[in-house]
């Protein structure tokens, strides 16, 4: 059974000794960390370090092999109901946007609230338009995804996640597939959400954005969490050699 605990300081997301293996490859090694309500966490690290795998475990797009993952006290396991409960509370934005190409922007946004949350069509439409305005793309409501630029598609994808009114948003390299000139329009939207108090876990290589938004930095390498530090501290004086090396490489240009 999923355990509901009502501690006063229950973390929003908690990973306890999470392990994940792809065949012989040990993708996640004893991952432990917590995200508090309203906290913004940026996860960084070299490619192949397990960042995406970790974040994808939080809404069970990947199954972890060992340890525990708790979202608002609900443990993720094979039980369908706890998974459904968690997925309603956790939204996700993908690197490749993954909009539904056969639906208009508005239909993309209305589907899940109507099917999963059982909201009325009218309400789903109102909420969808509200979030489309928020990501500044309301005028494209009746277009199909392929008619939009990459940056616009990603903003629609963010609005789609928001329409489910999740308490936590996961971002899996949200700007890595974008042309350079479109990166800032997406980051601006995410930064705005951050200011409004959304709990966020974001995998990204955009260190300027991280500095501006993050409360806490998580640095991963070879499937391990090497360092967790408050943002200012992490950038000013990383405590581990690997983090120092990574920062010097990524910030040097």
């Amino acid at each position: 059974m999923s355990t509901h605990t009502y501690e006063p300081h229950q973390p929003m997301v908690e990973l306890r000794n999470v392990n994940k293996q792809f065949g012989a490859f040990h993708a996640l090694k004893d991952i432990c960390f917590q995200v508090e309500r309203g906290e913004k966490v940026i996860v960084c690290g070299p490619s192949g370090s397990g960042k995406s795998t970790m974040i994808r475990c939080i809404n069970r797009l990947e199954k972890h092999d060992g340890g525990q993952i708790l979202v608002e006290g609900i443990e993720l396991n094979d039980e369908v109901r706890s998974l459904a409960a968690v997925r309603q509370e956790v939204g996700m934005v993908f690197q490749q946007f993954n909009l539904f190409p056969h639906m208009t922007v508005l239909e993309n946004l209305m589907l899940a609230p109507m099917r999963v949350r059982k909201t009325s069509k009218q309400e789903a439409r109102d909420v969808a338009m509200q979030y489309l305005r928020r990501v500044r793309i309301a005028e494209k409501a009746d277009r199909y995804p392929a008619q939009l630029s990459g940056g616009q598609q990603q903003r629609v994808a963010i609005a789609r996640a928001l329409c489910m009114k999740p308490k936590t948003l996961l971002f899996d390299e949200p700007t890595s597939a974008l042309d350079p000139e479109m990166i800032s329009e997406v980051l601006d939207v995410i930064a705005e959400l951050a200011r409004d108090g959304m709990t966020m876990i974001c995998v990204t290589h955009e260190m300027g954005f991280a500095r501006q938004v993050a409360d806490k930095m998580v640095f991963m390498d070879h499937g391990e969490i090497v360092e967790v530090a408050p943002t200012a501290e992490f950038f000013a004086a990383p405590s581990t050699e690997r983090a120092k090396l990574f920062l010097s490489q990524i910030l040097s240009h």
Binding site: A84, M92, F94, F100, V116
Partner: peptide
């Protein structure tokens, strides 16, 4: 497409 649908809770 599967992942987006799963993540939305469908």
């Amino acid at each position: 497409q599967h992942e987006a649908a799963d993540a939305l809770g469908l």
